[in-house]
Amino acid sequence: MSKVLMKGNEAIAQAAIAAGCNAFFGYPITPQNELIEYMSKYMPDKGAFVQAESELAAINMVYGAAAAGARAMTSSSSPGLALKQEGISYCAGAELPAVIVSVSRGGPGLGGILPAQGDYNQATRGGGNGDYKVIVLAPNGVQEATEMVRKAFYLADTYRNPVIVLADGVIGQMMEPVEINTEALPLIAKPWASDGNLSRGHRNVVNSLFLNPVELEKHNQDLRAKYDLIEEKEVDYELSHDENAEVMFVAYGTPSRIVKAAIENLKAEGINACLFRPKTLYPFPYEALKKAAQGKKFVLCAELSMGQMIQDVRLSLEGSVPAHFYGRAGGMVFEPKELVNAVKDHLGGR
């Protein structure tokens, strides 16, 4: 198949359908509306599309559909994701596979509608209650967004866990040539699903309520063991290797591309830098980042926030290499020259 020029939001929706998504529930919010619009047009042929009455309703419909064995998905943007947090915790508690696409914008509160990354903590730490983790994938372009949505369904089914694809407004709104993988994503048996099958002889119950503390502790331990496995197996990152690099940038999503432009500009001025780009934000590539940073003068974490991923970067480095931060917020996007200047400042005005 040849490439087509597609908007990120639409490409994500098409990739989700190609990956076998058969239940979509959403509520409109900029800058991810084209995703729901696409789903409303094409999902009815494949399964269920519901424009819910609220974000809360949408995530709980996802819970219900996932409990019944569907490949269920919802999408939203920052304030909408905030509303979904309770449902995400319930999905994690009931071990339900669910894919949540977050096309983030500026905050806090209603904030603005331009691209931002102030939802790193929201995605990786979550706002729901209890000890739970959500796998978080962070694409840096339209093609990768489609691949990560596909991977999200695979990971959700494999680990029976919610997966967030954390994009930003640029990825949602931008058009790029894309080739969507249309190969069927094999179905993983869901013998636990509450799907109305009476031939099993017992009822499947999907629930996150455990009133017996012994059982609930066991449930928490089982979840922890699952998260350990995810942390062992699913870490993903990209390192633009440069042996001579004296500085290492850390960035994810759209800013990682701006960093690449900054690295080119720095090179022209005789300063070598490299980029470490986490592709999974949970599990975070702690060890790989620490290893990649060894021997660098410092690490510069560039985010479209006032500093969120920098905490994980510092946890990775364990003080072995100095870590600095450069961020813009509210829909303001840094330019390559700002990053160049930040590097030069930290190098001592070179």
Binding site: L5, G112, P177
Partner: peptide
């Protein structure tokens, strides 16, 4: 223009202004 570039196998991105 983006389509032209794509058809020539070049890398291309198209980013619109949106919102307010």
């Amino acid at each position: 223009i983006a389509i032209l570039a794509m058809d020539k196998d070049l890398a291309v991105s198209w980013m619109p202004s949106y919102g307010p």
